[in-house]
Simulated assay, not measured.
Amino acid sequence: MSKYIEIIRIRFLMMLAYRTNYYTGIVIYTINIGAYYFLWKAIYGHQGSIQGVSVNQMTTYVAIAWMARAFYFNNLDREIAEEIVEGKVAIELIRPYNYLLTKVMQGLGEGIFRFFFFSIPGFILVALIFRLDVSFNLKTLGLFLIASVFSFTINTQLNLLTGLMAFFLQNNMGFIQAKRVIIDLFSGLTIPITFFPVWAQDVMKYLPFQGISYIPSMIFAEGMKGELILRGLLFQVIWISILCIPITLIWYKAKKHLVIQGG
């Protein structure tokens, strides 16, 4: 286990070496949130609220969702695809560690860096510029952190699945881009799921995407309380368990496919 902790540390230090990029990213995310703020303000107009959500609550939700994205987002799918296409994965497979678990640890190291050097300072900056409805309740923060770890896990699992498709596709970059658009839309990052049509909300109950952004953001914004929080966390745990199955099957088939190619 110590070797995987070391992988987290190494990835963190690698990100630290290029931290200037993330200071720029904070500004970009702030501008992005500002654009959403004025967009939603225009949509609301003179209405005090839409479906029980005020414009300040919407701004808070968007700010939390985008800053949480900095933690769970990673490029593991692209990294895996490039290693497969370039043949580097063959070398990785003979190393004394689990390839997929190593990728998860690398993503976690990156996520930890983003959380401390991107999410926290970025959220503080946004809170100073825009009016946010936030109450720093320790219990809520704790539940939010748990949900964020689960959201990171689900997003990383989807990235693993997408990246591994490079074993069977000559070029899966279009697939990767499509996956990112789908996640940003259906995870509730750009629009809260409660704003979708009822039929779409019913469909998304059976998809893992809301476990990535919507559930953690709603917990932090206190849009979920009590039993709803427990249901949300259970939803995430169930999907983490479900996604382990296709990852295991595809990885097993992919390694056999690699042996055939190399043989």
Rank of each mutant, 00 (worst) to 15 (best):
D202N: 05
F195S: 08
L243I: 03
P216W: 08
R231A: 14
T190Y: 05
E222R: 15
P216K: 12
G174F: 12
A178V: 15
S217P: 11
T162F: 01
A166F: 05
I193H: 07
L230T: 08
F209W: 04
L234W: 09
R180Y: 11
P208R: 00
M173C: 14
L234P: 02
G232A: 01
V181A: 14
F209S: 06
V181S: 13
A200I: 05
L243R: 01
G223P: 10
W199P: 05
L164A: 04
G211L: 09
I182E: 12
Y214S: 15
K225R: 15
P197F: 03
I212M: 07
Q210V: 12
G188I: 05
K179S: 13
G174N: 09
M165N: 10
V181D: 15
A200F: 02
G223Y: 11
I238D: 08
Q177E: 15
L228Y: 09
V237M: 06
F235P: 04
V203K: 00
A200R: 05
E227F: 12
G223L: 03
P192L: 08
Q177V: 14
F235G: 03
I238H: 07
S213L: 06
G211W: 00
I219K: 00
N172A: 15
V237W: 00
G223N: 09
S217A: 15
I238K: 09
K225C: 13
F175H: 11
G226H: 09
P197L: 06
G188N: 10
